[in-house]
Simulated assay, not measured.
Amino acid sequence: MMTIEINLLPWREEERARRTKRFALAMALSAVIGLGAGYGSILYLDQRLADQQQRHQLITARMTELDRDIRAVSQYEEQAASLKRQIEVFERLQVGRPQTVHVFNALVDSLEEGVYYSKLDRQGDQLRLSGLAEDNRRVSDQLRQLEASSVFDVPVLSQVESAANELRSFNLSVNQHMPVGENADGIEGTEAP
Rank of each mutant, 00 (worst) to 15 (best):
residue 93 L to D: 14
residue 164 A to I: 03
residue 136 N to M: 02
residue 13 E to I: 12
residue 23 F to L: 09
residue 68 R to Q: 15
residue 115 V to N: 09
residue 50 A to H: 11
residue 116 Y to L: 15
residue 34 G to N: 12
residue 149 S to T: 14
residue 138 R to P: 01
residue 158 S to E: 03
residue 189 G to R: 07
residue 76 Y to G: 05
residue 61 A to P: 06
residue 135 D to M: 10
residue 22 R to I: 13
residue 147 E to Q: 15
residue 109 D to R: 09
residue 36 G to T: 11
residue 133 A to Y: 00
residue 147 E to V: 09
residue 178 M to Q: 07
residue 150 S to W: 03
residue 103 V to N: 01
residue 45 L to W: 11
residue 64 T to S: 13
residue 140 S to V: 14
residue 170 F to R: 01
residue 145 Q to M: 13
residue 75 Q to G: 10
residue 97 R to V: 10
residue 84 K to V: 00
residue 136 N to G: 00
residue 82 S to D: 02
residue 35 L to S: 13
residue 7 N to H: 03
residue 191 E to K: 09
residue 139 V to Y: 01
residue 98 P to A: 15
residue 124 G to Q: 10
residue 20 T to N: 04
residue 168 R to T: 04
residue 187 I to F: 12
residue 109 D to N: 09
residue 71 R to N: 02
residue 99 Q to V: 09
residue 90 F to Y: 11
residue 126 Q to S: 06
residue 17 A to T: 02
residue 144 R to Y: 11
residue 8 L to T: 12
residue 157 L to D: 03
residue 50 A to Y: 13
residue 29 L to Y: 07
residue 147 E to N: 15
residue 61 A to L: 11
residue 153 D to W: 02
residue 34 G to K: 04
residue 55 R to Q: 09
residue 33 I to P: 03
residue 104 F to A: 14
residue 2 M to I: 08
residue 79 Q to W: 13
residue 55 R to P: 02
residue 183 N to G: 05
residue 89 V to I: 13
residue 9 L to V: 07
residue 119 K to A: 14
residue 50 A to D: 13
residue 45 L to M: 08
residue 142 Q to L: 02
residue 152 F to R: 01
residue 76 Y to Q: 09
residue 180 V to W: 13
residue 79 Q to D: 15
residue 143 L to R: 00
residue 43 L to W: 15
residue 123 Q to K: 11
residue 38 G to V: 08
residue 93 L to G: 15
residue 16 R to P: 03
residue 86 Q to V: 05
residue 30 S to D: 11
residue 92 R to V: 03
residue 173 S to D: 06
residue 14 E to V: 05
residue 34 G to P: 03
residue 21 K to P: 02
residue 45 L to D: 04
residue 68 R to S: 15
residue 21 K to W: 06
residue 189 G to M: 07
residue 22 R to E: 15
residue 168 R to L: 10
residue 146 L to K: 01
residue 84 K to L: 07
residue 163 A to N: 04
residue 182 E to F: 06
residue 106 A to I: 10
residue 18 R to K: 12
residue 183 N to Q: 04
residue 89 V to L: 14
residue 35 L to Y: 12
residue 107 L to Y: 01
residue 140 S to H: 10
residue 164 A to G: 00
residue 176 Q to E: 11
residue 62 R to E: 11
residue 83 L to R: 15
residue 20 T to I: 02
residue 169 S to A: 10
residue 137 R to A: 12
residue 5 E to C: 05
